[in-house]
Design a binder for these strands. Structure first.
Length: 244
DNA sequence: GGGTCATTTCCTGATT
DNA sequence: AAATCAGGAAATGACC
């Protein structure tokens, strides 16, 4: 608890955030708070439902700073949650966790939930240079948006597919029982794969070459004529509904 | 150190 | 026209 408070207090509380930030956000590079992520991902819709624990923490810090809240009044242990869990918190949950700040946090979050795009405000808090060096008190966030465990590419793809609620429209089943799926955001999946492999130069062009090597090993079956569509083959396991 | 494996990188050319 | 697909060839990095 003390550590959290100290952390918050390290932000100069007298100066307003706005006065310390560059005024032109469009040209300001987003600092690499999560190494390996590119601005490409950040420019996509980024609703709180998909935030990692890390982003939840950053949002909370920004709110505390913006509203000059006494950090001691906040029960930080209630915010060791990811975006999905944060969004399922009720008005009462917020009040219980933050006292008088509850209504403000609750309303602010609700506005973000329904905004379709990355708002100026969202960008502001995610990119705030004031936040870069502040340690996150919670464990490292899992890879956004799903948490693919597999070490191989096809397992990585499978595991995103198997987390529909957190997959954020990257991939989609075309035929669930036959194992046919399609890339919806091919470059974003490639970036995510690159992050996992610590390779920021990964592209769909390169990822797809690796996918094509799977045909010979029968991990994937060829689907003809359909762009961005693949099908799991007999040597791919763990994707069927009946399995596992 | 060598060999294997699973990609990664690069490329040329075809297709959508 | 741009994106995607097809594979060959070679390079790379992890692992045994």
């Amino acid at each position: 608890m003390v550590r959290h408070t100290t952390c918050i207090m390290s932000i100069p509380s007298t100066a307003s955030i706005e006065s310390q930030l560059p005024t032109t956000w469009s040209s300001y590079p987003c600092p690499d708070m999560m190494p390996g992520y590119t601005s490409r991902l950040w420019s996509q819709d980024y609703k709180p439902q998909y935030w990692s624990k890390y982003l939840v923490w950053q949002w909370l810090q920004q709110m505390v700073d913006m509203h000059q809240i006494d950090a001691a009044s906040i029960h930080f242990q209630n915010f060791d949650v990811d975006g999905r869990q944060l969004c399922s918190m009720t008005y009462q949950d917020f009040t219980r966790a933050t006292g008088t700040m509850g209504p403000i946090l609750y309303q602010s979050l609700n506005e973000l939930k329904w905004s379709g795009t990355l708002t100026h405000w969202t960008k502001l808090f995610m990119c705030s240079p004031l936040l870069i060096d502040l340690p996150c008190p919670f464990p490292e966030p899992s890879i956004y948006p799903a948490d693919p465990q597999g070490t191989h590419l096809w397992e990585f793809i499978r595991d995103i597919l198997l987390n529909p609620e957190r997959n954020a429209g990257l991939l989609k089943w075309e035929d669930r029982t036959d194992g046919v799926f399609r890339f919806l955001k091919s470059e974003d999946v490639a970036q995510l794969w690159g992050k996992k492999k610590n390779n920021s130069t990964m592209t769909y062009e390169k990822l797809s070459r690796a996918m094509r090597y799977y045909y010979k090993r029968e991990i994937l079956e060829h689907v003809d004529g359909r762009r961005l569509v693949y099908k799991f083959g007999k040597n791919a396991q763990g994707w069927r509904l009946s399995e596992k």
